[in-house]
Each structure stands twice: as structure tokens, then as C-alpha cells.
Design a binder for these strands. Structure first.
Lengths: 339, 339
DNA sequence: TTGACCGTTGACAACGCTTCCAAACTGCTT
DNA sequence: AAGCAGTTTGGAAGCGTTGTCAACGGTCAA
């Protein structure tokens, strides 16, 4: 009876059981090829390890090798489905490479502390960091922490590692579709203007207009800031105008806009077509179901983790990976321009 | 110039700078009260620590004390908003007590491996575990891992630690409200029947009916299994019947049901009232806005983490914490019974 | 017989911290 | 003047690994 299995077996235990030195046991269990070990003893060690259900103590290993095999991911919010997706992707990629994922929700003010706690105390080997606004502070904190990191959907001046979504492309694709339906007065519910992503999306929107020979009208772009409330009040502002379609920077603001439309008694898509960037489960739940251009957010997480792991392995990955926009998904919220 | 700050300062460094032994430095930096240290040396050590920006290496500390100060949370899915909320709550409570949170997405089949990796390799001090279905397997794996754990919204036979939501109470509250509106033919979109939560909610539904003197009719309960598709097809089945209201076990299945209703050309709430358990951002996005009975899911996470930490501190918390249902939130999806 | 060399194994010193124990020093009492 | 209690400090042994280095026995050429 392995009643002694109360205590975890250590390398010492398996070495003793196999009648060898702990260093030898370490070598074979770790698969060290530099120094060979006799076939027979090797078998004996493996057998003992299995018998004792030996699993290496990762803390001791981390101390010795100064590699924790854990990645930290710091996100500004946990309820946002976009970040959930990123985390999911990162977790998957991490465990696939034998790493664990430590998550850290970072309140706006406490970025320095968070980063310090994770990196300087050497809890993690590297950091995946997402941010809503691109504080310069963030950059200096990160640099000060002296830890490898990759930015999520954010690009900071300098040769930092980052993975970004081609939001400009996505925005153009969405706007193109609206134009193809005959719309000319197309509004845009933007993110926080001045932010990296909001700018990119706005550019994509402009690209599409320009290509179609439609003049840009600044009264048609409303800052909705990625929130439900923002989308709602932005749409309220638009209601007096002559827009017949709207391209929202995100599903959440689109949902807000739709509620405003419903409350005003407008029909979707007859009175107003609406399309959003990012696709997700809620697109189908909205009424009418929301047309979208997908974005590979989960992939962003996994690619970022993969890059970070390469970095840790001493390899030289591409500085910034740009992920192409997903496909146009036509649902019921968009329709041809009607007069 | 602290160009030497390239390398993290160790306890040894601060001891040397302060001209004391590392053990003394450890004592004062750790705030050990058992053995007192002279005021003057104490100051000197603190000063050196600050100068070197010393932060204890948590790996070394973990090895020595065999406490990692990290909690693992294992969840079956990461996209479900319920689990996001739980994670958020757990993370908050954990960092408040100086712990970190390691997340682990567990695919259905790999529970044993996951648990073993986290606990037996002593990466975590304890586990928070959520599960969609209460496998007995889970219990034995957990016991085998010989690690403190607390179950999330799940109760397993035996005196295990768990925190559960009073879903029965919530279900009753929701159903009561429907009854108060005059409805008598009330359907229930249940979870996976046989599961702990589905049962609890069904009981609450029955409680309300019984109290109101309404006969239970099994043809009115449809298994929707917490999914959008499930809710949709369950509602399809119900469409032929005479139900005038439906109490959905979850927002997601309610959303599916609403889509089915829309597609069938039925009016909400005129033709069918609908209310769901759990409240969240999407309730407001649906059309019409969904009435709900809230559930403290985030609190479930934080309470669970708090209990686990107590357990680790050697205290004896209550075995199971039952969190009361949240308030009834009336929105537009429910209305009086009309004939 | 000696020495070189090979494959194989053991010794041992870290990694950075905690903690028990003993040493050193102080100020007192007898 | 010696002993004693009390306070402040240093010494040292690990925690479970890894990795370098040397030792060992044996084979083989000289």
C-alpha cells in the first residue's frame, strides 16, 4: 500500500529506490543527452519513478534554473469577451508548450505594482500585456521590470514585440459591404479617438469611402468608446441625421446602438443597417442578428504566447505579427439601401 | 548609477550592504516578531533594501516554505460569461490576500492531468474547481492529488468545501414573479437534467408552482442545457403548446428562446413572457431587454478564494457557503398575462 | 605493466530563502 | 568577580533540483 504517498516523492526517493545517485536520476528523468547513462540503470530509474509516481517539483527546478515556465497575462478587464478570448488563446498555446498562465487583472492605476510583483519577484518568465489605452507609463514600467513581454493589439514606438489585429482591413471590409448595398451616408461608431485601434478602424472606414468616391463627413463619426452606453448615446446623436447605415467598431457599441434604434421605433435594417467589427456569440442573440466582420482575437492570444515563448527560448521572432481580419458574416442587421 | 540593477538584488546583497548576516536581514524584511532586532540595524536593513529595490524571490521562498502563494482555478470553458465572472472574483480576492491566480482551462477528458500538473508539481497551494457536470471522476482525481480545494457551484457527497449559489431560491423568485403577473402555464427551460444545478432550479420552479396551487406539468419543462441552440430548439418545441411565459435557467438559453420566438413571429412579452436566471450585460442588449433574477457569480469566485485561503491558513471555514440569489430585475421581456 | 581513454556513475556546490540554535554582548544581581 | 537573564546577532542546515567535475572500472594499444 502506498500509504506513504501522503508525501510527494522527491528525486531523492526515486534515486534511493533505484539505488543510484540523485544526479544520475536527474539526468535520465530529464532526458539529458549530453551524458549517457547505462540502459539498465536507466530502466531501473524509470521504473522507480513510475512506482513512486514521481513528478518533478517545479518550484525547486525553477529556483535552480531560474525559469518558472509560467507566463503572466495582464488585462485591464476580465468581463470583456475580447479579453476572455485572448486569455483562452494564450492559455491554449501556453500549455501546449509546457507553460502555465498566471492571470492578472490590472486596475488602471496599478500597472507598475502589478508588473513588478509578477516579474521582479520572478514569478513569471515573461509577460503578455493588454491595455485599453496606450499609456507611455506602461512602456517605462515594462522596461523597468526588465522582463520579456509582448503587447496585445497595441503598438508602441520602438522595436517591441506585439501582435496586432488588422483592424484597418476589417473596418474597410465592413464599410465596403455597406457601400456594396448601396449606402452612401455611412456613420461610424468609433472607439476612443486618439487610441491606436480607434485610429486604425477610422482609417479603414475612410479607405473604403475614398475608394468609392464618397466624401468623408466628420459629422458621421461618433465616438462611442467600445461601450454599450456609448453606442446608445452615439446613435441617439445620429438619429437626427441622414445616415442609412452604421459601422460600429465593436459588437458591444453596436448593441447599444440597436437598443437606441428600437427605442426610437426605427426598423433594422430598413431604416438603418448596422454592422460591427469582431464576431462572437452575442451577434446571434441580438435582434436582428448582427452582421459582423470577424477578428481572430483568440488567435491573437495564442500567437502572442507563442512569440513570447520563442523569445524566452532565445529565438528571434518577428517583432510584430499582424493578424488578418476575419470573414464578413452577413446576418439580418444589414440590408440594401432603400429610399 | 545602478547599472548593476540588471540583475535582481538578492537578500544576500542587502545583507552585505547593511553589514549584517542574511538571516538578520530576512528577519526584519519579513517582519518576524518572534525574534527582535535592534532598531538601528533594522533601519539600516530597510534602507539597503529600498536602495537596492529588493523584492523577495518568491520561488526561493516557495521552495523553502513549501507555500507558493498561488491558487489554481480550473474551469471547463473560458468563453462563458459566468466563468469569467467567477475568475474575476477569485482573482480579486486572491490578490487582496497576496496570492496569485493560475488559470487552467480543462478539456473534458483531461481533468486528472490538469490537476496533477498543478498540484503534484506543487505549482499551487490549492485549487478552485468549476465543472459543468459533476463527474465522480473529478472527485477521485481531486482526492488523489491530495491538495486543498473548493468546488464552485457544485456539491459532491462528503464534507467537501464548496460555494454554491442558491439557484433554487432564484428559480422560485423568477417563477413567483411570472405567477404574480397572472401566468399559469409557465414553461421552464432547464439545464442538463440530472445535474446539480438543473435540479435545484427545477425544484425552485416547482416550489413556486406548488405554493401558487398550480399543477406541475412535465410537458412544460424542456431541457435546453445552458446553450443558445438548446434554448432555441426548446422554445420551438414549446411553440405548439399553451405556455404564456417561460423561466429560463440561464441568459444564454433565454437568448436562444427569444430568437426562436422572433422567427416564429411571436411578440415578447405579449405572446410570451420570458425571464432568466443570472444577470449580466447582455440582458440589456437583447430585444426586448431581458428580465432576470441576478446571481452573485463574481462573489462566488471571491468567496471561494477566501475560503481556500482560510483552509490553507489552517482555519476551519464553513464547509459549504450558500450565496443568496440576487434581486429580481424587471425589464421589458415580461408582461402581464393577456388572453 | 602502464597509461590513455571510454562509458558510466557519484560528489558536491549552488539557486535564494527561512529558521533553529548557539554565540556574543549588555546590564544586573549576588 | 562571577554568574545569570535578556537582548541582539551570526552560523548553518536545509528545501528539491541541476550541472559541473572528478572518480571509477574496464578495455586496449604501447
Amino acid at each position: 500500500m502506498s500509504k506513504s504517498s501522503k508525501q510527494r516523492a522527491t528525486l531523492n526517493d526515486v534515486a534511493r529506490l533505484a539505488g543510484v545517485d540523485v544526479s544520475t536520476a536527474s539526468r535520465v528523468l530529464r532526458g539529458d543527452t549530453a551524458q549517457r547513462v547505462g540502459k539498465e540503470t536507466k530502466d531501473r530509474i524509470h521504473k522507480s519513478a513510475k512506482e513512486l509516481e514521481y513528478l518533478p517539483n517545479s518550484v525547486a527546478r525553477a529556483l535552480r534554473t531560474s525559469k518558472t515556465y509560467t507566463l503572466g497575462i495582464v488585462v485591464p478587464q476580465l468581463d470583456n469577451p475580447v479579453f476572455s478570448a485572448v486569455i483562452r488563446g494564450a492559455e491554449r498555446a501556453a500549455v501546449a508548450k509546457g507553460y502555465s498562465l498566471l492571470i492578472s487583472h490590472r486596475e488602471p492605476g496599478e500597472t507598475a505594482t502589478t508588473i513588478a510583483n509578477l516579474s521582479k519577484r520572478s514569478r513569471v518568465d515573461g509577460l503578455l500585456v493588454a491595455s485599453l489605452d496606450e499609456d507611455e507609463v506602461l512602456r517605462t514600467d515594462l522596461e523597468a521590470a526588465n522582463v520579456p513581454y509582448v503587447l496585445l493589439n497595441r503598438q508602441l514606438p520602438g522595436a517591441y514585440y506585439a501582435v496586432v489585429l488588422k483592424s484597418r482591413e476589417a473596418a474597410k471590409r465592413a464599410t465596403d459591404y455597406l457601400i456594396s448595398l448601396g449606402h452612401r451616408r455611412i456613420a461610424h461608431l468609433s472607439g476612443r479617438l486618439g487610441g491606436f485601434n480607434a485610429n486604425e478602424r477610422l482609417k479603414g472606414y475612410c479607405d473604403a469611402l475614398r475608394e468609392a468616391g464618397i466624401d468623408y463627413d466628420s459629422s458621421l463619426v461618433e465616438e462611442a468608446g467600445y461601450t454599450f452606453e456609448g453606442g446608445k448615446s452615439a446613435m441617439l446623436d445620429l438619429l437626427g441625421g441622414d445616415a442609412t447605415a452604421v459601422m460600429a467598431a465593436t459588437m458591444v457599441s453596436a448593441a447599444g446602438a440597436m437598443v437606441a434604434l428600437h427605442e426610437a421605433g426605427r426598423q433594422i435594417p430598413e431604416d438603418m443597417s448596422i454592422i460591427a467589427l469582431h464576431d462572437g456569440a452575442i451577434a446571434e442573440m441580438l435582434y436582428p442578428a448582427l452582421s459582423t466582420v470577424g477578428m481572430p482575437t483568440e488567435e491573437m492570444g495564442s500567437v502572442a504566447a507563442a512569440i513570447l515563448i520563442q523569445l524566452l527560448a532565445g529565438e528571434q521572432p518577428e517583432a510584430v505579427a499582424a493578424l488578418p481580419a476575419g470573414p464578413l458574416i452577413v446576418r439580418a442587421s444589414t440590408g440594401p439601401m432603400t429610399i
